[in-house]
Amino acid sequence: MTVYKYIRLYFSIVKVSVESQLSYRCDFILQLIIWTIYSFVNFIGLYLLMINYVEIGSQNFIETIYMFGLITISYNLARMIARSFDNFHVLTMTGDLDVFYIRPLPIIFQIISSNLFLRRIAGIFQGIVVLIIYYQYVNTPIYNFAFITSLIILNTTIMYVGLLICYGALCFVSENGNLFLNLFVDTSSNIGYYPLKYLTGIVKYFLIIVIPIYYVVYIPATLLISADRGICFSIFISSVISMIILGLSVIIFNRMSKKYQSVNS
Rank of each mutant, 00 (worst) to 15 (best):
P104T: 07
A169G: 14
I81G: 01
R229C: 09
Q21S: 10
S20N: 09
I152L: 11
L164C: 10
I244S: 03
F125A: 15
H89R: 04
G192R: 02
I13E: 09
L154C: 12
L154V: 13
F125E: 02
M243C: 14
Y205M: 10
T2G: 09
N52S: 12
M67P: 00
W35V: 04
S113W: 08
V41A: 11
G247M: 09
I7C: 10
Y135T: 14
E55P: 01
Y134F: 15
V203S: 12
R255I: 14
S239T: 14
D27L: 08
I153H: 11
T187H: 11
G95H: 04
N176A: 06
R25S: 11
L170D: 01
K5E: 15
P141C: 07
M256T: 01
Y134K: 03
H89D: 13
I71N: 04
F172C: 00
T36Y: 13
T157W: 01
R120A: 09
S23D: 12
Y143E: 11
C171E: 07
I191S: 13
S174D: 02
S84A: 15
P195L: 01
Y194P: 00
I142L: 09
F180V: 05
L151F: 06
L77S: 02
I7F: 10
I209W: 10
G201Y: 04
M67L: 14
N60M: 06
Y215M: 14
R79E: 13
Y10E: 03
S114W: 05
I107T: 12
L183D: 11
L224E: 00
R79T: 09
I65N: 02
P195I: 01
L49D: 10
F180C: 04
L97H: 06
I245E: 00
V173P: 00
N42T: 13
A146P: 00
G95P: 03
N115M: 15
I71L: 14
A82S: 13
I34P: 05
I244V: 15
Y205W: 14
P212R: 06
E63P: 01
F85A: 04
R103E: 13
G162Q: 08
L154W: 06
N87P: 00
Y194K: 15
T200C: 01
Y47D: 03
C232Q: 10
K15T: 07
K259G: 01
N155D: 15
P106S: 04
K204T: 08
F88K: 00
V3Q: 06
L163Q: 07
S113G: 07
Y4V: 14
V18I: 15
T64I: 13
G162K: 09
V16G: 14
I191L: 15
R79C: 08
S262T: 08
I209D: 06
I37T: 04
V240Y: 01
P141D: 09
F100G: 02
Y214N: 14
I148M: 07
V129W: 11
V210K: 12
Y137T: 07
